[in-house]
Design a binder for these strands. Structure first.
Length: 488
RNA sequence: GUCCCCAUCGUCCAGAGGCCUAGGACGCGGCCCUUUCAAGGCUGAAACCCGGGUUCGAAUCCCGGUGGGGACGCCA
């Protein structure tokens, strides 16, 4: 049977990288086995859910290249895919549980429950619901109903031992006595997470539940619910959490946690996917750089590690650099263009020239934003001289003369290609009796304003004879002009 | 506190009883290339949490300890 898996985010927040990885594992599993990837929005918490969050999550998934076969916008035979539109089903399920003796009404006030918990905590104990309402006399129930007292539905946890075989963790067993009679339907008639997940997983025919480790302790409750609802439970695979550098669950304190944020910072989706896939999963060999197709080809739930993983940004940076180096020029240009605009620049009109520039810059960049920054000197009319660069390479009194000589020599260099430009620069240095480096560094400041750049000869050729000469001459003029604040 | 999960270089992984003198990657150090910065090539340092078993033999299996994490809501 083809597997049906689902990613079920709650739109109470953005798409967290941990969630993105869970989604990725589900997606990979579905694609690997020709199954179906369902996207379901768990928005039963009306107070905290928002439509904007849904949009953000959908955009994030799409950006990563994770498409869903059923879900919002895609539709499907098991819809609706928003839990807020499925409330009647949960209510029906709750009613059925009560009718069949698997659940009962609870009239306890939240205040009372809170007080009991606080008292228990003061004693250093964990408090579990005392089943007060299970033992309510019929007369008392009648009284409560007569005044329409708010009531929730609680699941009557049976004494059955709950055990399951987790694909990543192996056999896991829970003592039912450690599980309290949890609420399945709130007094406002909205289901709790436990009820809605199970009802939906049953109705949507989910065969494999691949979700975060933090749900392990919820699993026995779900197992009990599946049983009470007369459905066979799916296979469970609990993937370990992603941690921050301090080994605590990754949160905003550790820096960026949202997929959108990484996107904004200039990471490539393919790099993000590759990195996330390798966080807690391994193909079994030493492969590091893997395309989406390769990931699909070798993904297996058995390859998921049982221990949590620290999110290592340095490795992400390296990986992104690798992808940046391999990205086809056209795609890189398209990805960088908007960043240039955002930086007040504009992409060059000549695509071939733009691509040459990009090829010079990409090995020096980790992220798209680096490319945009590195491109600046090549896209402005007049470069800004970095004070440190001036101090470092323009201090010598004969520098203006050297640069002027180079400008003159380059003015007649023909053809203006790398070998000839290099020969000219070296010959000029020799004529002036200085090491080539002196001239090269000064020229670099002239044409880029910076201490670092791609190889000078490549830069000069890219800029072309006219612009190169003009920039060299401008530096000569600049050095000849007394500036305020300079010591004579 | 109770329950559950986890435990190999700083980090991410490989390792499913002898192939381990523990392998790869990131990061870090060195060297090479070199006009700067990167990239690239070569190279180095760096780990089986501790204690008991089982076995001819344990990083691998079992038990205990310790450590880390997670869950204990009318949140998801």
């Amino acid at each position: 049977m083809a597997p049906r898996v689902r990613f079920a985010p709650s739109p109470t927040g953005y798409l967290h990288v941990g969630g993105a990885r869970t989604a990725l594992f589900n997606w990979l599993y579905a694609r690997r086995h020709g199954g179906t990837f369902v996207l379901r929005i768990e928005d039963t918490d009306v107070q905290r859910s928002s439509a904007d969050m849904v949009t953000g999550i959908l955009d994030g998934l799409r950006w990563l290249g994770l498409d869903w076969d059923e879900g919002p916008e895609a539709g499907g035979p098991h819809g609706p895919y928003f839990q807020s539109e499925r409330l009647d089903r949960y209510r029906a399920a709750a009613a059925r549980l009560v009718a069949e003796g698997h659940a009962y009404f609870c009239y306890c006030s939240p205040e009372r429950l809170r007080d009991e918990r606080e008292k228990a905590e003061a004693r250093g104990e964990a408090w579990r619901y005392d089943r007060a309402c299970l033992a309510l006399a019929p007369e008392r129930v009648a009284e409560l109903e007569a005044v329409a007292a708010p009531r929730a539905v609680r699941f009557k946890v049976p004494a059955t031992h709950t055990a399951f075989d987790d694909v990543v963790h192996g056999p896991i067993a829970f003592d039912p006595r450690s599980i309290e009679d949890f609420v399945v339907l709130r007094s406002d008639d909205h289901p709790t997470y436990h009820l809605s997940v199970v009802v939906d997983d049953v109705e949507m025919g989910i065969t494999h539940v691949i979700r975060g480790d933090d749900h392990i302790s919820n699993t026995p409750k779900h197992l009990l619910l599946f049983e009470a609802l007369g459905a066979a439970p799916p296979t469970f695979a609990h993937v370990p959490l992603i941690l921050g550098a301090d080994k605590k669950r990754l949160s905003k304190r550790h820096g960026a946690t949202s997929v959108t944020e990484y996107r904004r910072q200039g990471y490539l989706p393919a790099a993000m996917v590759n990195f996330l896939a390798l966080l807690g999963w391994s193909p079994g060999d030493d492969c590091e750089l893997m395309s989406m197709a390769e990931l699909v080809g070798s993904f297996s739930l058995e390859g998921i590690s049982g221990s949590s993983a620290v999110f290592n940004v340095e490795k992400l940076d390296w990986m992104n650099g690798q992808y940046l180096a391999r990205l086809p020029a056209g795609e890189l240009a398209a990805a960088v263009a908007p960043l240039l605009v955002a930086a007040g620049l504009s992409a060059p009109g000549d695509p071939a020239w733009f691509h040459r520039l990009l090829d010079l810059l990409r090995p020096r960049a980790k992220r798209l934003t680096d490319v945009a920054d590195l491109a600046r000197p090549f896209l402005v009319e007049t470069v800004e001289y970095d004070p440190q660069a001036m101090e470092k390479h323009l201090e010598g009194s004969d520098v203006p003369g050297h640069v002027a000589a180079l400008a003159a020599a380059l003015g007649t260099t023909d053809p203006f290609d790398e070998p000839h430009v290099e020969a000219t620069v070296r010959a000029t240095a020799a004529d002036r009796g200085v090491k080539a480096g002196v001239l090269i560094h000064a020229a670099r400041v002239a044409v880029t304003g910076r201490t670092t750049s791609p190889g000078l000869f490549e830069v000069l050729v890219l800029l072309g004879r006219d612009r190169s000469v003009a920039r060299l001459e401008r530096l000569v003029d600049f050095l000849a002009t007394p500036r305020a604040g300079t010591i004579p």
